[in-house]
């Protein structure tokens, strides 16, 4: 088990290393930030000063090693607009993102599994078809479009829910962003649960359970569901990871002061360190969560080969 953990850990570090490298090279394509920060009017000496401050006068290889060294020690640079350390700002914002992500995932998991079971048990019925259409809808509508539609319907027409702001103002501020964010994972979890349940419901051991005289309830929840959960758990954890990485559009549209909002706000300001920092942070978080999920899997299921 320990060897397994160490192996997974090393691989995760390798992945993060790759992520950093790719981000470094993408960001290296950027136009000269010294000019962008100061605009066209900046005199050459100021630009040179900024370049040397940012280390941009060094050769690419040297900058790469600087960048990697800094990043691995948690130094993601300073924001061009606020001049605060990027990591500090991200961590401060992360609380809001995490609140949104966790609450959305709780709803998505419960509803998604429930809908999935229902449509598997009643497969090819009206309910199943409705849930298919619902799921397709959830999968097809981009989150910013869904958010705006919700704002129009619940905020402007019905005027029953607040459309902009953080939970500081009241818990009802959570509702719209949470539901918008949950819609996609609900749909996907429902589809995954359905197909996994359909597989399992046609399994021989489910037939055995029926032949024993077990009730439909027992067959579904005791015998089938437990075996069908594996792909569902994978989906849930992958979605949690990706929601924690920031729900950019939803945070932006609902004015939710999280990490994603910060990244979107940074775009028109050309605040590259912030964008770069969010990308790195999100990717690292993703890798870490997947690492933890792998460990938990191995720990829960002794049949998973520790290879």
């Amino acid at each position: 088990m320990l060897a397994f953990i160490i192996k997974k850990l090393l691989y995760s570090v390798l992945i993060i290393f790759g992520v950093m490298t790719i981000i470094f090279f993408i960001m290296n394509l950027l136009p000269d930030p010294a000019r962008m920060m100061q605009g066209q009017r900046a005199d050459l000496s100021t630009q040179a000063a900024i370049r040397s401050e940012l280390g941009l006068d060094k050769p690419v290889v040297a900058r790469y090693f600087d960048f990697m060294g800094n990043a691995f020690t948690g130094n993601l640079g300073r924001s061009y607009t606020t001049n605060l350390p990027v990591l500090e700002s991200i961590l401060e914002r992360f609380k809001a993102t995490a609140l949104l992500a966790f609450s959305a995932m709780i709803i998505a998991t419960i509803l998604g599994i429930a809908i999935g079971i229902l449509s598997a048990v009643k497969s090819y019925s009206l309910i199943d078809n409705l849930s298919l259409v619902f799921a397709m809808f959830g999968i097809s509508v981009p989150s910013f479009v869904m958010g705006l539609l919700f704002i129009i319907v619940f905020g402007s027409w019905l005027e029953i829910l607040p459309i902009s702001g953080y939970v500081d103002n009241g818990i009802e501020y959570l509702i719209l962003p949470m539901v918008t964010l949950a819609l996609r994972p609900i749909s996907i979890i429902a589809r995954v649960t359905r197909s996994s349940m359909l597989d399992v419901l046609s399994a021989d051991y489910v037939r055995t359970a029926k032949a024993k005289g077990a009730t439909q309830r027992t067959v579904i929840f005791r015998h089938a569901l437990r075996n069908a959960l594996n792909p569902v758990v994978t989906t849930v954890s992958a979605w949690l990871a990706s929601l924690l990485a920031g729900a950019f559009f939803i945070e932006y549209i609902f004015n939710w002061p999280g990490m994603g909002w910060m990244a979107v706000e940074a775009i028109p300001r050309s605040d590259f360190p912030t964008i770069q920092g969010v990308v790195i942070f999100a990717a690292v978080l993703f890798v870490v969560i997947n690492f933890l999920v792998d460990i938990v899997y191995a720990w829960l299921d002794p049949k998973v080969k520790l290879a």
């Binding site: 399994a203 021989d204 051991y205 037939r207 055995t208 359970a209 029926k210 032949a211 024993k212 005289g213 077990a214 009730t215 015998h223 437990r226 075996n227």
Partner: peptide, 22 residues
């Protein structure tokens, strides 16, 4: 249901997959 598994028992072809793995 009260008859299945009680008055009438049944066994199947595939013993490898007929038992619940969990």
């Amino acid at each position: 249901r009260a008859i299945r598994g009680n008055k009438i028992g049944m066994i199947f072809q595939e013993p490898m997959t007929s038992l619940n793995p969990v």
